[in-house]
Simulated scan of single mutants.
Amino acid sequence: MKQYIKMLLFVIILGGVTSGLLVGMDLLTKERIELNKQAQVKSAILDAYEIKYNLNTVHDIFDEEVTVIQYEGQDTFYIDNATGQISYIFSGGGVWGTIRGVITFEQDFKTVVNLSILEQSETPGLGGVVAEKWYLDKYKGIVFADSTPYIMIRHGSADNLSNEVDAITGGTRTSEKFEEILNTAYADFKAKWAVVGV
């Protein structure tokens, strides 16, 4: 009986110490983790605007080169001070989890300059292609339509219209979800840009 009590005390003490260490590490690294998340978004936006930076200067250069406009404290537009290009962060449910990224438009708020993915959980080699540069480069120059669907991700070999992009081979469901995410976000941000646009 004594042996079980000693073992129970050991487990309780060990659990308390490891829990304390984990909580302590969380508190110590929380600010750094948040800065890294911000740096990831800022890097994606600066890359879209082709502005040079490094990991030590990303925050300062972003603050100098990009104007940030918030709509009612929630959704944010990022504008390149030099070119007037406009970016926003989109997010929505993919097949296996959230797909979150940054899309950048010319001043017309229709023509895609760049598209990058910050987070996704799609199947590697299939739907996961949605985050690969060669696939995202297909969106450059695409012109969103004036009405819904603003952009279409289509299957087949017919020539694409100005608002159409080829679907991901073997990633049909991801393509459908991605199209839905882009259209929903664009409808939302387009209405807000009409209010706050400069």
Rank of each mutant, 00 (worst) to 15 (best):
10 F>T: 13
125 G>H: 07
172 T>Y: 05
185 A>S: 15
57 T>R: 00
57 T>Q: 00
159 D>R: 09
157 S>N: 02
140 K>N: 02
63 D>V: 10
35 L>C: 12
5 I>P: 09
67 T>W: 12
161 L>S: 13
9 L>S: 08
111 T>A: 05
149 P>W: 02
180 E>Y: 10
188 D>A: 04
165 V>S: 06
159 D>H: 10
124 P>N: 01
194 A>F: 13
11 V>Q: 11
198 V>Q: 12
75 D>Y: 15
22 L>M: 06
111 T>E: 01
80 D>F: 11
84 G>W: 05
130 V>N: 09
188 D>F: 05
146 D>P: 14
138 K>R: 05
197 G>L: 10
35 L>R: 15
15 G>Y: 10
196 V>Q: 09
193 W>Q: 00
159 D>T: 14
93 G>Q: 09
16 G>W: 08
34 E>M: 14
171 G>S: 08
70 Q>S: 15
132 E>W: 07
143 V>T: 08
122 E>T: 00
69 I>V: 05
21 L>R: 07
85 Q>F: 04
13 I>C: 10
164 E>D: 02
20 G>D: 08
61 I>E: 10
63 D>E: 01
136 L>G: 04
16 G>Y: 09
82 A>W: 10
51 I>V: 13
109 F>W: 10
125 G>K: 04
47 D>H: 06
97 G>L: 03
156 G>K: 06
95 V>Q: 15
108 D>P: 11
162 S>H: 12
22 L>W: 08
2 K>H: 07
59 H>A: 13
16 G>L: 14
130 V>M: 00
107 Q>N: 05
10 F>S: 14
80 D>V: 00
187 A>T: 13
172 T>W: 09
98 T>V: 08
34 E>C: 08
105 F>E: 12
68 V>E: 02
35 L>K: 15
157 S>A: 07
50 E>V: 07
121 S>K: 13
119 E>D: 15
191 A>R: 14
151 I>C: 02
197 G>E: 14
84 G>S: 02
81 N>A: 13
13 I>G: 01
16 G>S: 12
97 G>P: 03
89 I>Q: 13
170 G>F: 05
20 G>T: 03
112 V>I: 03
8 L>P: 08
164 E>V: 10
152 M>A: 04
170 G>H: 11
3 Q>L: 06
93 G>F: 00
169 T>A: 11
169 T>H: 12
144 F>W: 03
75 D>T: 10
39 A>P: 05
134 W>F: 14
99 I>Y: 04
76 T>L: 01
98 T>W: 10
109 F>A: 03
3 Q>K: 06
63 D>A: 09
36 N>C: 12
184 T>I: 07
154 R>N: 12
77 F>V: 13
80 D>Q: 02
73 G>P: 11
119 E>H: 14
189 F>C: 07
129 V>I: 12
175 S>H: 00
184 T>H: 05
67 T>Y: 06
180 E>S: 04
155 H>C: 11
63 D>I: 07
171 G>I: 06
76 T>Y: 01
97 G>Y: 05
16 G>H: 09
1 M>Q: 12
